[in-house]
């Protein structure tokens, strides 16, 4: 409450609310407001919803483990992974050059208009969710794996570009000064200073995004693309919850493998 009394004018401005009190107030307000918007009067749970929920949980013990189904899971996992790999490569191909431009470090530091415009483009690409892009693409050019891959690659390119730009900008300055002092052009400073120093972070963020791309590729089932999400939808429609669990565990395994791969690669890059 010290802020209510300005002891020394000029040292601390008189404020009605301190920042953190304002923040607390806003967060509590958001809590109350969002709970008030929900329609609590109607039935929240389906008739038979409770039974379905317990069926669903019981289906985990055990999940469907027949050889045929496991083979199907493997095929579906491969489909999802291959679409995710394709999508992330396109995303990197879009995001890396745009990110370098957006960082404003490749050429002389003076002109800031081009980086600003590129940053705006990147923001536009990532403001629309990949599935919304996909639904729009399906309406515009029809359903195909390449359309789905492009739908993932657009927002992901936008995110990667923005993060790449920040990472390239945020490398420590002294090594760059050394390069500049020895007469390197901005391009050389980028190639021999900024990029090598930012590389571990760039790689690990790209891997994190690859993990997200696996999930994105899985939900492309919504527009009819095959993969883990597609099989989950089929099994859900048939109320085969134990199959749903198996498929979900395959997704978990994929994410864990990517996680491990990424941390190993990162470790070997840093050392």
């Amino acid at each position: 409450m010290a802020s209510l009394i300005a002891l020394e004018p000029g040292r601390r401005p008189l404020k009605f609310l301190e920042n953190r009190h304002l923040l607390t107030l806003l967060l509590v307000g958001a809590l109350v407001w969002s709970l008030a918007v929900v329609d609590w009067r109607g039935p929240l749970v389906h008739s038979g919803g409770g039974a379905a929920a317990s069926d669903f949980l019981q289906a985990l013990f055990p999940p469907e483990l027949s050889t045929d189904f496991l083979r199907l899971c493997l095929v579906a996992s491969w489909q999802t992974v291959s679409y995710a790999v394709a999508a992330i490569t396109v995303a990197v191909a879009i995001g890396f050059p745009l990110g370098v431009i957006a960082s404003g470090t490749a050429y002389t530091q003076g002109n800031l208009r081009v980086p600003a415009i590129v940053r705006l483009c990147l923001a536009g690409m990532r403001s629309i969710h990949e599935l919304v892009w996909a639904v729009l693409f399906v309406s515009a050019v029809g359903l195909s794996p390449l359309a789905a891959i492009l739908a993932i690659a657009l927002p992901y390119g936008g995110i990667l570009g923005r993060i790449y730009a920040d990472l390239i900008n945020d490398v420590p300055d002294p090594p760059l000064q050394a390069l500049r002092a020895s007469g390197a052009s901005p391009m050389r400073v980028l190639l021999y200073g900024r990029l090598p120093m930012a590389l571990p972070e760039l790689v690990s963020y790209t891997f994190y995004r690859f993990e997200c791309a696996i999930r994105a590729a899985a939900i492309m089932s919504f527009v009819g693309i095959r993969g883990l999400g597609y099989e989950i939808q089929l099994s859900l429609n048939d109320l085969l919850f134990s199959q749903v669990w198996t498929l979900m565990l395959f997704m978990v395994a994929l994410v864990m493998v990517v996680d491990m791969w990424s941390s190993r690669l990162r470790r070997s890059l840093v050392s």
Binding site: G42, V45, H46, G49, A53, L131, L236
Partner: peptide, 12 residues
């Protein structure tokens, strides 16, 4: 989205 597909089985 997959969580939503599952949860919609239980909740209105």
């Amino acid at each position: 989205l997959v969580w939503a597909l599952i949860i919609i089985f239980f909740l209105s």
